[in-house]
């Protein structure tokens, strides 16, 4: 696979017309994702009933890679139990960051991003939605992929002089 594969038509189609674009009026959980390296900002909303994700919405100021990855993620997580979603999320982050990736067929179109593995800066654009989602499920309002592509709390703003 080459980097161009990450921009194949199916990915660009997601980026041009992302699924699940827009905030939810009634969300159970809202969270923010930040990737300062690229200046990306992502806001995600989840509607959860009976431990199942029944709706997902997002807004982003981000690259096509981030938009497409978030769109694909939304397709994957709808109507899945939180346990399943956590497992998928771990699998997606593993695919992008582990030394020997497992290509999980359950990841669907997300596997197209496989080709940007090994680019330590770029992978943060596509781990951002999953890191933000897993952070949100762990009760974290803001997640950053700046230091760790798998996601971490953003550093606190230093106190004003």
């Amino acid at each position: 696979m080459t980097v161009a594969d990450a921009y194949r038509e199916i990915v660009l189609a997601h980026a041009r017309a992302p699924h699940h674009l827009g905030r939810l009026a009634h969300a159970s959980v809202r969270a923010e994702g930040l990737n300062a390296l690229c200046g990306d900002r992502l806001a995600i909303d989840l509607l959860i009933r009976d431990d199942t994700i029944v709706d997902f919405g997002f807004e982003a100021e981000a690259s096509a890679l981030t938009l497409a990855a978030t769109s694909v993620m939304g397709d994957l997580i709808l109507d899945r139990s939180l346990d399943e979603v956590r497992r998928l999320g771990e699998s997606a982050l593993e695919q992008m960051t582990a030394a020997t990736p497992g290509l999980d067929p359950a990841l669907g179109d997300f596997r197209h991003f496989e080709s940007i593995r090994g680019y330590p800066n770029r992978i943060k654009t596509v781990t951002l939605p999953w890191a933000t989602l897993l952070g949100a499920l762990a009760g974290r309002e803001r997640t950053s992929t700046d230091i760790d592509p798998r996601g971490a709390p953003p550093p606190e703003r230093s106190r004003k002089p």
Partner: peptide
């Protein structure tokens, strides 16, 4: 987006900064 621009220009051998 600038990130896409930089990644895709790189595929053509062109190195620019983005961010």
């Amino acid at each position: 987006h600038a990130t896409d621009l930089a990644v895709l220009l790189d595929l053509e051998g062109v190195a620019v900064r983005s961010g």
